[in-house]
Structures are given as C-alpha cells and as structure tokens.
Amino acid sequence: MLFHRLSRLGSRIVKQLPRERHLSVCGMRVLQRSYAQYLQSSSAVVLQRQPQQAFFSNNNHHRCTSFSTVSETEKINVIFVDKDGEEIHIKVPVGMNILEAAHENDIELEGACECSLACSTCHVIVMDTEYYNKLEEPTDEENDMLDLAFGLTETSRLGCQVIAKPELDGIRLAIPSATRNFAVDGFVPKPH
C-alpha cells in the first residue's frame, strides 16, 4: 500500500511539472488542467499534502525572481473543514484560487463550470467573519451564483473567486454538507 502511494505521489509530481513552469513564466493563473486526478482521488491523501510544491520551489524561485515583487512560492495556510467536519490543513501559493488549491490537494470541492462563474458548486463558507471581511466584495456575477448556492450563509463565497493572498493566512473554509440537511423539496437558502 505504501509503495502504491509513493508511486502515485511520483506520478503526481511529474504531472505538476509542465504546469508549474507555465505558471511561473506567465505570472498569471489560468485554470487549464485535467481533473482526472481529482476523480480518482479518494485513496491516497493521508500523507503530507503538498510535497510537489516544495519539490519545485527552487525551480520556481529561479525563474520568477525577475518578474514579480511577491514571490510565486510564497504560501499561506488554509484550513478546510470537510463535509464530515474534519480539518484538512494545506498550503496554498499566493495568487492561486481556492478551488484550484482544493483540487491540487485532493479535497472534495466540486467545480462543475471550471471557474467560468456559471455554477455554485465550489461554494465555501468562510468560518471567521474577520477573514471574510479581508476578501474583496463579490461581484454581481458571483452573487448571482451564490443566490443559488446550497446552504448559503452570510460569509459564503465561491471558491474559484477567492484568491490566496498573505492577509488570508490561516483562513478556515467549510465545505457545505448536504447529507445532514438536504431538503427533499429542494434547498431553502438561509436569510442573508
């Protein structure tokens, strides 16, 4: 089993390689990835969750220094509270959106429209108002989608619209759970 995990890890590292380069050269983030690994994700996530990032940090550093003032390799701590109430601690590079970060770390957060602001499946709840207030106001388009989000709260956001920045270090995000409270007649958003 351990061997299996290690080999998976290895293949993931290889998969990351071209993308990491692409990102560091462009300095801009485009979600353009296969979610295949996300689909088959369930078995090997118990180990440390961000080795591939560390592996390439030197590489990034080498390439990026002349481009930006904020280092691409700067990372913040993000804590996901999953549907079962378990905490998952991950490190997210500054500039990366939360949906993408979740997928990089095999966290079950859906992204049906792949960041095109046409669905509400990457809905996350910012657990501390203090952090929520550090985020930029949601756009009309994001609010249109949030209106439809299951279990909407006052500190709800779409994961794809939350971009990691240094002030958000330590942010806790809950993934809404359906199993506990899904109404048969459809959802009833909470008052806002």
């Binding site: 669905c119 509400s120 499946t121 899904f182 048969v184 959802f187």
Partner: peptide
C-alpha cells in the same frame, strides 16, 4: 425524486443524499 426544480448543482446534493 424531488420534482422538476433546481439547477445542475442541486443534483450534487441530491446525489449525495
């Protein structure tokens, strides 16, 4: 299961249940 209401994402939660 629940009648013809909701959006694509509603099925996510419906399926989970």
């Amino acid at each position: 299961k629940r009648g013809p209401v909701g959006i694509i994402a509603t099925n996510l939660y419906c399926a989970e249940e």
